[in-house]
């Protein structure tokens, strides 16, 4: 029987590592910034939850600063233009939905897709991270698990009214996630993060969220794999 290979030893100071890190770290920073802005904007539309949402926005801002410290620690300059471009389509879809007052779509993009994308990446990153970044990321993951359910709770409470829009929004946005993962597959591999592990972690967490909201097991399987085949 084969043995389980231990995680490869990383040279965090090598140029190859730092080059890949400049993009992955930028994505993480941009993701937290997106989240911060999205929650602030959502708080204007969901006034009953204004305080909760502003609290979330502040937390995402703290996370962003933590990840900025991670790149400083490795003397890496995050490639922010790359990251903004990386998130552009999801960003635009969120802004369009917001302008149209489609809260369900906004929550799917922010609370389900962006949050799950972040948590999966952090989960897979932690075992291969440098010591400094590991501590920061572990703290962030702990926070994220505590608030992952804001959008979930809202969508659950409004499930019947949201169902059709969730399906449409899922169809439009989930394929973007697979595209985004493909785009950074090589960089992630340099950091020791395997694409199949990232996809799997995403599908598990995303599927759990859909299931909590009220989708049946069959719907969860269908929705969480949407677009993966052609990615």
């Amino acid at each position: 029987m084969q043995t389980l290979e231990v995680s490869p030893v990383m040279d965090f100071q090598s140029e190859t590592y730092k080059d890949a890190y400049s993009r992955i770290n930028a994505i993480v920073i941009e993701g937290e910034l997106e989240a911060n802005n999205n929650y602030k904007q959502l708080s204007e539309h969901l006034s009953d939850f204004k305080d909760d949402l502003l609290k979330l926005a502040r937390m995402e801002n703290r996370h962003m600063k933590g990840f900025q410290a991670c790149s400083r620690n490795l003397s890496v300059t995050p490639d922010m233009p790359f990251a903004r471009d990386f998130f552009a389509q999801l960003h635009d879809n969120f802004q369009t939905a917001l302008a149209e007052g489609k809260m369900v779509t906004c929550l799917l993009i922010q609370s389900l897709i962006i949050e799950t994308f972040a948590i999966s990446a952090y989960n897979i990153y932690i075992p291969v991270a440098d010591d400094f970044a590991r501590k920061i990321t572990e703290g962030v993951v702990k926070d994220e698990y505590m608030h992952l359910n804001f959008g979930e709770e809202w969508l659950k409470a409004n499930f019947e009214a949201s169902k059709a829009e969730l399906e449409t929004a899922n169809r439009a946005n989930l394929p973007l996630v697979w595209k985004m993962l493909n785009q950074v597959e090589d960089d992630a591999a340099v950091l020791g993060m395997e694409k199949d592990a990232l996809v799997e972690d995403f599908m598990i967490t995303y599927g759990e969220a859909l299931s909590n909201i009220g989708f049946s097991a069959r719907d969860v399987m269908r929705l969480s794999a949407q677009g993966l085949a052609s990615a």
């Binding site: 694409k195 799997e200 599908m203 399987m221 969480s224 949407q226 085949a229």
Partner: peptide, 15 residues
């Protein structure tokens, strides 16, 4: 969504 997939997909598929 699952029926036409190769091994890579199953390596990513959730329980």
């Amino acid at each position: 969504e699952y029926a036409e997939q190769g091994l890579d997909f199953w390596c990513s598929a959730p329980p």
